[in-house]
């Protein structure tokens, strides 16, 4: 089963009301804008349906749905065909906003909802691991960012200092 099949499955989950809204992030999301980025898993961010009378959000409805379609759990992943998939709830206002403003991109006749490039870049800056910084550099190098929108996001989510540090560390010789 291919990544496109994963997208078909997740779209069906949304159509069947198992999840409210989803968007693809991480390396798979970045691949919509950049060159293919090696990854072992697909990150799907979801707005979880809250169940009446329950305060905690749970993955159980998603897992039940997928199990009934032949998927299974492996470590922290749900295996959808050959792909380990992580269903993630937004853990910050930045990721919530990325989910709310994600865009639809056609994948050979199947619509996929994906974080905007500017949000993927801002999340990479916020996360700040070596591979995230490398990804942010790729976004910049390939001219994939709307600089105004990107800087608005940085200001809105208090990431300007982190951006200034990143600029000093990686971009001082590029200007």
């Amino acid at each position: 089963m291919s990544l496109r099949d994963v997208i078909v499955t997740v779209n069906q989950m949304e159509a069947d009301g198992v999840i409210d809204r989803y968007a693809i992030g991480g390396a798979v999301g970045a691949t919509f804008y950049l060159e293919p980025i090696a990854t072992v898993d697909a990150d799907i961010f979801v707005a979880f349906k809250s169940e009446p009378g329950k305060l905690l959000i749970t993955l159980e409805p998603i897992l039940d749905y997928l199990r009934s379609r032949g998927c299974f759990m492996k470590d922290e992943y749900v295996m959808i065909g050959d792909w380990p998939v992580q269903f993630l709830a937004p853990t910050s206002r930045l990721v919530e906003e990325a989910l709310d403003t994600a865009v639809e991109i056609d994948v050979e006749g199947e619509s996929a909802r994906v974080f905007r490039a500017e949000h993927l870049a801002a999340i990479a800056l916020q996360t700040g691991r070596a591979k995230d910084k490398a990804r942010l550099l790729q976004f910049l190098e390939q001219g994939e960012l709307d600089r105004n929108r990107f800087h608005e996001i940085l200001e809105h989510h208090s990431l300007v200092d982190a951006w200034n540090r990143f600029e000093r560390q990686f971009l001082k010789n590029e200007q």
Binding site: L3, T31, F32, P36, V40, D82, E108
Partner: peptide, 14 residues
């Protein structure tokens, strides 16, 4: 095209 890039990811993961 994105379809092609996703197929490359499929092969990279394998």
């Amino acid at each position: 095209p994105i379809g092609e890039k996703l197929r490359i990811l499929d092969r990279m993961r394998e």
